[in-house]
Write a protein that binds this DNA or RNA. Structure first.
Length: 620
DNA sequence: GCCGTTTTCGGCCCGACTGTTTTCAGTCG
């Protein structure tokens, strides 16, 4: 039984306990255990066998004697007594009801006990028949909202990818900023924390118009924005609505003086906030979205900035990406938070395409775009022949392409030698206007170059059915960068796919493993290969593993990135750009790396080009 | 059910909004 299943079973038990009206603190402990298990990079099942050291499970915060016994039961039998008992009392489909808006545990328990309604279809039927109106607190409005909720749930219960969510956040922010007196709109929530997907948007607005005595007008402005599909709720300083694509947006308008407290509060995560408030209480303080207050006299200790609040709690400032209550508070207290990687640390991008296969720009265009973004080297890695639909290269074309790449490389080196930099800055400045080198507010200033920009010849070679590659070794030997990727046939069993990739890693010319998992971020599809096995082998062989920065193609999740670091895997981050503008996708990938606590030292392509090449796998 | 620079017992985060209430329970983030 893997960690994800374990966590899901405990989380379901928590939900059933909630419906059962159990002690809320006991419920919380089940949730906490589920979250703790999800965060582990090592599988727990081997630690839960009868002959394993019991201390190992107990070492995980949130798991005590009782929960350890539950875990051992789950691993041994697939279930546990409490869960079995609850499952006979209630229906598993009731868990789904909790996902509907307005349906909490109490209401689910009520419709079950009063009407024997235990699944979505029955609930909808009861609502349409007016049966719900006979129950307390469930009138016309509740029923109408619920029916809409059921409809939305069936149509689209998925989350939104971070790049899409960010785009909407920016559009809405622009509309809100049109109101005079609102001078700042900041995305908070999981978008600011850099989660791969977000369930809803949290936007925090502030400025003179958001002060308590005048905020009503600004609320009216937000509640009547033209792109609102359905207004869900509106309060004194909060507006909730959905867009036509069903993305839910929460806008809070808060006074400038409490901006820091509000930003901290709405950025979350929930668990991080809970832990922070507990810490505050231990210090005789109380934390809310308005301020950090001293309990005895309600004096404001900190409110204007997040830094003040963390510092007042004897903590170093914690970057949003780390705020998951996953050890960051302890590290901040001990001053041992890592110096997280930033976009600025990146020096090269080793995976991109040109017009030679399925890209839209030339080699020189890609080089200029990379220079404009402050990079020092790139690798051109067009597709190989097996991907016919991308106009992939056979051996003859691949060798000819290498010659052109080397020509561009030499051309740029000559320019650098002749003009010592100014020419490079011209490339930069020509593009500076329409390139947004920002990372959630941090503006990246390109630095003057200290060495010639390098364009490295490479290829993204396709892994075939038996694990062999679709180009000759003699061709691959000419390349600096050989990215091996799986592009299709993900319908194969996981062991078949894994063996295929492992075999490809053995090829002495492969120095980077490209996308291989067939993972789709929004579809909850299982991985097509055993990532743990692949990472272990890659570490042994010295093959670098790519983290694809494009949100649509991100193969590795937070957990895999942390595991890769633990295993000493050589990691690189690449955009896989098919157009110059796609190089900007890099910042999404950087955020993912930050979430995994990675620093500049954990990546190969934060090094200078010459150092980087020396760190790659040794070739025969 | 977990946990311990006040603790092996007695705590366990905070506030806003909704609906249907005539003072609040349930939900949400």
């Amino acid at each position: 039984m893997d960690n994800i299943t374990l966590a899901r079973l405990l989380d379901e038990t928590a939900a059933l306990l909630e419906i059962d009206g159990a002690d809320p603190f006991r419920i919380r402990s089940y949730r906490r255990a589920a979250e703790a298990i999800e965060q582990q990079t090592a599988q727990l099942a081997p630690l839960a066998t009868p002959d394993a050291d019991p201390k190992l499970l107990l070492a995980i915060p949130g798991i005590g004697k009782g929960m350890a016994a539950n875990i051992r039961d789950l691993v041994a039998t697939g279930s546990m007594p409490l869960r079995d008992e609850l499952m006979t009392k209630y229906k598993p489909t009731m868990l789904e009801l909790l996902r509907l808006p307005g349906m909490g545990p109490k209401t689910v328990a009520l419709v079950w006990s009063a009407l024997q309604v235990g699944d979505i279809d029955a609930l909808e039927a009861a609502a349409r028949a007016g049966h719900l109106n006979t129950l307390p607190r469930m009138g016309e409005k509740f029923t109408a909202k619920l029916l809409k909720g059921i409809e939305d749930y069936r149509r689209n219960s998925s989350r939104f990818r971070i790049d899409e969510a960010k785009e909407f956040a920016e559009r809405i922010a622009k509309l809100i900023l049109a109101f005079p007196g609102i001078d700042q709109v900041t995305p908070a929530g999981s978008l600011r924390r850099g989660r791969e997907t977000v369930g809803d948007l949290d936007l925090l607005a502030t400025g003179p118009a958001c002060e308590a005595d005048v905020v009503a007008a600004a609320v009216e402005h937000v509640a009547t924005l033209p792109l609102i599909d359905k207004l869900m709720a509106r309060g004194q300083n909060k507006v909730t609505f959905t867009l036509r694509n069903n993305l839910q947006v929460d806008v809070r308008l808060l006074p400038r003086a409490s901006y820091g407290a509000a930003l901290q509060y709405f950025t979350g995560s929930k668990h991080h906030n809970v832990a922070l408030r507990q810490r505050a209480l231990k210090r005789g303080l109380t934390l809310s979205e308005y301020a950090l207050l001293r309990l005895e006299d309600n004096a404001i200790v900190a409110a204007a900035s997040e830094e003040e609040i963390y510092n007042a709690l004897d903590l170093d400032y914690i970057p949003p990406e780390l705020r998951e209550n996953c050890g960051e508070i302890e590290a901040a207290a001990a001053h041992t938070l890592p110096k997280l990687i930033t976009l600025r640390d990146l020096r090269g991008d080793l995976h991109m395409h040109t017009v030679e296969s399925d890209g839209t720009a030339t080699i020189l265009d890609m080089a200029k775009a990379a220079i404009a973004r402050g990079l020092e080297y790139i690798a051109i890695t067009d597709h190989s022949k097996n991907l016919a639909m991308t106009n992939g290269l056979d051996d003859v074309r691949a060798l000819a392409h290498i010659r052109r790449i080397r020509e561009v490389d030499a051309e740029l080196a000559e320019l650098f030698a002749q003009e010592k930099g100014p020419q490079w800055l011209r490339y930069r400045n020509a593009k500076a206007g329409d390139i947004r080198l920002t990372h959630y507010g941090e503006v990246i200033e390109p630095q003057p170059p200290t060495a010639a920009f390098r364009v490295l010849p490479g290829i993204e070679v396709d892994i075939l059915a038996e694990g062999e590659l679709d180009l000759e070794d003699a061709t691959l030997a000419q390349m600096d960068i050989v990215v091996a990727s799986v592009h299709s046939r993900f319908d194969q069993p996981i062991d078949v796919m894994t063996a295929r990739v492992l075999r490809a890693l053995e090829n002495p010319y492969v120095n980077i493993l490209g996308h291989a998992t067939g993972r789709k971020v929004l579809k909850r599809e299982p991985y097509a290969i055993d990532i743990t096995a692949i990472l272990r082998r890659a570490a042994e062989l010295g093959v670098a593993v790519e983290h694809n920065a494009a949100p649509a193609r991100a193969d590795l999740n937070d957990l895999h990135l942390r595991l890769a670091k633990e295993l000493g895997v050589k990691l690189v981050i690449n955009t896989d750009a098919h157009a110059t503008g796609e190089l900007d996708q890099m910042h999404h990938g950087i955020v993912q790396l930050r979430r995994a606590w990675l620093t500049a030292d954990d990546l190969l392509n934060t090094r200078r080009a010459v150092d980087f090449l020396a760190l790659l796998r040794k070739r025969p």
